[in-house]
Computed example of a mutant assay.
Amino acid sequence: MSAAEFLRDLIRLQALPGQEAALRERVLQEWRTLGFEDVQADSGGNALARVPGREAGPAWLLLTHLDHVHEGDPALWEHPPYEAVLQDGVIHGRGAVDIKGPLAAQTYALARLLEQGERPRSDVWIVAAAEEETGGSGAAYLVAHPPGEIGAVIVAEPSSNQLMLGHRGVARVRVQLQGRAHHASLALKDENPIFALAELLKRIEALTFPDFPVTGASTLTVTQLFTDSGSENLTPNAVTAILDWRFNEDDAYNKLVLEKLLEGLPARGELSALWTPEYTPGFVTEPNDPLARKVLPYAARFHAEPGVWRFATDGRYTANAGWPTVGWGPGNEGLAHTTKEAVAVADLEAYSAALAELLGQESPS
């Protein structure tokens, strides 16, 4: 089997967060067939396995995840989301780039070494974590229960095979603006929370954040709105706004920003505790970091310079655990979570070849 064939098998298995069992078993089966060792599912729902290296010392960790987002309305897809259509060298379907393509590519990087009768220079743990899409419970379990001494991590989220040096943190905040329901004909603006919402939106629009090295500036935007009004001629008692916050700053700064946004408004909202699914920091690996310098020559075959992800990954957990972490994976990140999700077979194969070469020649420390 090849990375492309394995990916097509994976796409045919739906694996929404918390519903990854069938996919996990298929992944474990493939790893056993390929001759990986210590193949197992841990108590956090993760799939993991080890390929022993030639030298003693800390191990590489290759990290993806099992779950993917819902496919939405299948009628909006050119190709059915779970049929894994292969057309003109491109595989289509939910999870093609996020995350089954990178999972297949990392798997077959290791398979490539074993098929050539070789071993990686250092031990390699490969992990497909559970529930990444809903906050990373699998990765949280992994760093609390590491399978061995980890020297460096390569997170294979889609990056078009570009080295990635991190991403911003992510917080989701529920803000409730309170008013008093009344007949629309009264037009009591001071009691209609939608007018308070309008002021909040203006404040968010005017908000600016300082630019940060590597990751750029933070962003804050509104993604969803809900009211409790059940009639077109009745104003609501309350409006709830969901804020999506991609941040670089620390917790104290973020709380101050939120406080100023809500100041004087009939509103309440707060950040949850850090390292809960609603509020996790990002991570940054500096360009001159030893791990970045080690991986870049292999990734530079595709992109000369490193970048950063716009979205969050499980790398936030591994970096916070003190494990040097970079990102590097096949697939266009702009196609993730869309109805056009697809990945070129050539990109999978090129990534697998470059990663196999790195693992065969480099130690993580």
Rank of each mutant, 00 (worst) to 15 (best):
M1H: 07
L7Q: 02
R8Y: 08
I11E: 03
L16D: 00
Q19V: 09
A22W: 06
R24V: 11
R26Q: 13
Q29D: 15
G35H: 07
E37S: 11
R50S: 06
V51S: 09
G53M: 14
G57Q: 05
A59T: 11
W60V: 04
L62C: 13
H65F: 14
H70N: 08
G72I: 09
G72K: 11
V85H: 12
L86G: 01
V90G: 04
I99D: 15
A109Q: 05
Q116K: 15
Q116V: 06
P120W: 02
D123G: 15
W125G: 05
W125F: 14
I126V: 15
V127N: 10
A128F: 14
E132A: 13
G135L: 15
G136E: 10
S137A: 14
A139N: 04
A140D: 13
I150V: 13
A152E: 04
A156I: 07
P158F: 01
H167G: 01
G169W: 05
Q178N: 09
H183W: 01
N192R: 06
N192P: 09
F195I: 04
A198E: 14
F209N: 07
F209L: 11
P210C: 03
P210I: 02
A217K: 15
T223C: 04
T223Q: 11
D228A: 12
S231I: 01
F247E: 00
K260F: 02
L265Y: 00
G269V: 01
A273W: 01
P277N: 01
N288W: 08
H303T: 04
A312G: 09
T318Y: 13
G322W: 08
G322Q: 04
W323A: 13
V326G: 01
G329Q: 07
V343C: 00
A350I: 03
A350R: 09
L355W: 00
A356C: 06
L358A: 01
G360V: 00
G360N: 03
Q361H: 11
P364L: 00
S365W: 14
